[in-house]
Design a protein around this nucleic acid. Structure first.
Lengths: 140, 140
DNA sequence: GTCTGTGCAAACTGTTTGCATTCCC
DNA sequence: GGGAATGCAAACAGTTTGCACAGAC
């Protein structure tokens, strides 16, 4: 999803296009992976935008509620990303430096979900799969 | 792993067997699924044990460090369970009532891990897979 | 002008830490 | 008796909320 489509989407849903909101979308589009509120804030600071943290949280809540971004809590902190409609992906999480990277693997999880739903009477909405370990830099 | 083996294991590693510690192990063995510190505390209360919360956290840290239990953070809160050596399992997490249940599915994740490690120079230690949705009771 | 978005301060949840006391072995 | 375990209070991180003001449309 490119940023202008997203802006249109926001307008269509009655949202306003403030500088902050546009920059946040821009940053998330460019990042193309999970980003924490703290990292997002420091990115904004570099653009001379110094919003209050509560504003960031509210903005991320807004974008999540409009289904523009997805929230994923990893080890206690919330991360956000723009979903990629074609390829559902997973993440590699470094236990030392906490870096997160995307990974695309073939899995039959979508197929499994149907089976699980049937067998367990549990209606699955989504899933999250993270691999924890040590990234290249942190292995030594 | 049964509780007496665990007690022996604790003794062997220099840990003491206090009433609290024994009850916590007992509760986790019986639960046989993820339990939060808060739920654990309320189970203990029913047994007329009213430890301080910090004691609970320290106890769970102790058991984790001794590899007797595993910690899994889901949506911002830590859950603990006694690992099951034969079958690695995953979890169904209800988005409404937050109930967590075990699920065993055939996956090739162990095989995938080797491939990922090779391709990404990322040494995987473990993974976590959770399915989010609505449990039987919460589906209306 | 209206209603959404924002800043500020304060509350909140889950977890961690320092220090003095208790009690297991 | 010595060291591990515990209670208590206080700190901490990440997130949420109430209220007043600012700014997009």
């Amino acid at each position: 999803m490119n940023k202008d489509t997203i802006f249109q989407n926001i307008r269509n849903q009655g949202g306003r296009l403030t500088r902050l909101r546009k920059e946040i979308v821009q940053i998330l589009v460019e990042e193309d992976c999970l980003l924490s509120s703290a990292k997002l804030l420091s990115r904004l600071n570099k653009l001379n935008l110094t919003p209050n943290r509560s504003t960031i949280f509210r903005e991320l809540l807004f974008l999540t509620s409009k289904q523009i971004i997805l929230k994923n809590n990893i080890s206690g902190v919330d991360y956000y990303e723009i979903p990629c409609e074609q390829h559902h992906h997973h993440h590699l999480v470094c236990l030392k430096c906490h870096a997160i990277s995307k990974i695309e693997i073939e899995d039959q999880l979508a197929a499994q979900e149907k089976k699980i739903t049937k067998q367990n009477k549990f209606r699955i909405i989504n899933h999250s799969l993270e691999f924890y370990g040590y990234c290249r830099k942190c292995q030594i």
